[in-house]
């Protein structure tokens, strides 16, 4: 029972690692299909990504029943808890990187956004390179 419970916890933890990647792919598809959409759409897409990530996070923390008494006394349980904590920290670090990179931006949808700005600048006779650089700095 204890082992089963721990496996469920780890699987839930694993799903939260995978979900940002799935969400990223979803965002990419949406953005690619609608390359002429405005940045408002990108913001909505970011919001959906965040929601998808949050839903996978409602995991219950492990409890004393998940470990045998000898595991608790020997330090084995603490070692396992540390590994679980590191897995979660990796999720947070990955998500933080994704947010900083424009929330799920991939090479293809970064290119799409660049194209959109080129299009905008050509209509407004703006400085294309300047706007491109500013956009790149944001992502």
């Amino acid at each position: 029972m204890a082992v089963l419970s721990r496996c469920v916890w780890l699987l839930l933890g694993l799903s939260s690692v995978i979900s940002p990647v799935l969400a990223q792919n979803s965002t990419e598809t949406t953005t690619s299909q609608a390359s002429t959409q405005t940045s408002t759409t990108a913001a909505e897409s970011d919001s959906q990504t965040t929601t998808a990530q949050s839903n996978t996070e409602s995991t219950a923390a492990p409890s004393e029943e998940d470990f045998a008494p000898q595991e608790i006394e020997s330090g084995d349980a603490l070692g396992q808890l540390q590994q679980m904590a590191e897995a979660q920290a990796n999720v947070i670090a990955k998500r933080s990187l994704l947010r900083r990179a424009g929330s799920g931006c991939s090479a293809s949808n970064i290119r799409v956004r660049q194209e959109w700005y080129v299009s905008f600048s050509s209509h407004s006779n703006g400085d294309t390179d300047h706007i491109l650089q500013a956009n790149l700095a944001q992502v």
């Binding site: 923390a61 492990p62 004393e64 470990f67 608790i72 006394e73 020997s74 349980a77 603490l78 808890l81």
Partner: peptide
């Protein structure tokens, strides 16, 4: 300060 003390602190308090 045993492993048991530390581990139970983490597991018992939500």
């Amino acid at each position: 300060t045993t492993f048991g003390n530390t581990t139970r602190l983490i597991l018992q308090n939500q």
